[in-house]
Design a protein around this nucleic acid. Structure first.
Lengths: 200, 200
DNA sequence: CCTCGGTCGTTAGTCTCCTGACTATCTGCC
DNA sequence: GGCAGATAGTCAGGAGACTAACGACCGAGG
């Protein structure tokens, strides 16, 4: 995931200049867009550097966290078992990817697979004691890094940031059916109108 | 890059509950962190779906944009040539990765390599007419999508968002030497103190 | 001249993740 | 009972990114 458009963000004046040649370009929108991608990437790297020291990749961590958070639920303390399909759903990757991730984690002794008697297609994945131990070792520092990163923001700023990001995020995901409906190459929805009304 | 921790963000109450068991966990920091990564990912997907229709990946697009933005500079109109090392620097990937990306782009006829007479180690990469044409075809929709995504935010909100993201981004990148200096497994800087003063 | 350190682009090998196709299994309808 | 369709997990192949190492080349020093 390391790599986002241009490394050093263009100055705003450059965006303004580019907008003259490209009427579709909304300079302030572009600025937000670039800042968002860039800061997400930067923040990700900070925690990824930590996880990498334990040979945990983003994907692996996602699986471990999914199992962990399901174990923290009201039920029993050690009953954390999810099917690969559940894991795929919660981590947002395909089932095929989960197979590979679980393979690696299983080889490392961090998770275990078990068969399901009732439905023989299904398998359940659960944290081993070693997997739990690793998480207990990793998470404190992981949490510390999140807190450290956000320490520049006061509570009010955090609330604002979450609210604004939420608006953008919803906008981005609501357009999920764009590839299936609108299709080939045109503007997904009424995007052209929105832009026109905004820039004109 | 699609995949970020847990797909559906935990509710704030869950974070509060988890914080009881893990004193290092700052709930509001974690919420910002998760929103940031998640929204960055979501936003990225929106533009990536568009680029993918033209068989342009994130990395390829980065190279094209670097060449394009260097061509838009004060100099001549068609003189857009950068060395692979320059491209690596601007897009934030290694020179080895650039070799692969340029290979693909060259095979597709979008860029061309040329030798440098003065320094025979160097080669210059430039957009072909076909590459320029593709960009002219792609960019309007690309810009429209950025504008559409941000259309939920008014100018004031955009300014605020850029400012807050800037603070986090700077924080994240200033810690760049963290792996080299602090090293193996401990807290990078005075992170523990920051957290303590924040949560206590 | 010519060697030495540094830089350039490339190659080789590895890793993660994705897409698409495949096999095994369950379920509902005849 | 037996077959169609959906579903679960896996396999195969590919793209992108990294590190480590290489051969080619420049520039400064003896």
């Amino acid at each position: 995931m390391p790599l986002l458009m241009l490394k050093d963000l263009p100055r705003y004046e450059c965006l303004l200049k580019a907008a003259q040649a490209h009427p579709e370009l909304d300079p302030s929108a572009a600025e937000v867009f670039l800042h968002l991608l860039r800061s997400g990437d930067e923040v990700f790297r900070v925690v990824d550097r930590h996880l990498a020291r334990h040979h945990i990749s983003e994907g692996r961590f996602g699986v471990l966290m999914a199992l962990w958070s399901s174990a923290e639920r009201p039920g029993g303390d050690g009953r954390q078992a999810l099917s690969p399909a559940e894991l795929a759903d919660r981590t947002g990757v395909t089932r095929a990817t989960i197979t590979g991730l679980v393979d690696t984690l299983e080889r490392a002794g961090l998770v275990a697979r078990a068969s399901n008697i009732e439905d023989r297609r299904m398998r359940s994945v659960s944290l081993t004691p070693r997997g739990s131990a690793l998480l207990r070792e990793i998470l404190p520092e992981h949490f510390r890094r999140m807190a450290w990163l956000m320490a520049t923001l006061d509570e009010q700023e955090r609330v604002t940031l979450v609210r604004l990001l939420g608006k953008v995020m919803q906008r981005a995901s609501e357009e999920g059916g764009e590839g299936a409906s609108g299709s080939s190459d045109a503007v997904p929805l009424g995007a052209a109108e929105v832009v026109a009304s905004h820039s004109g």
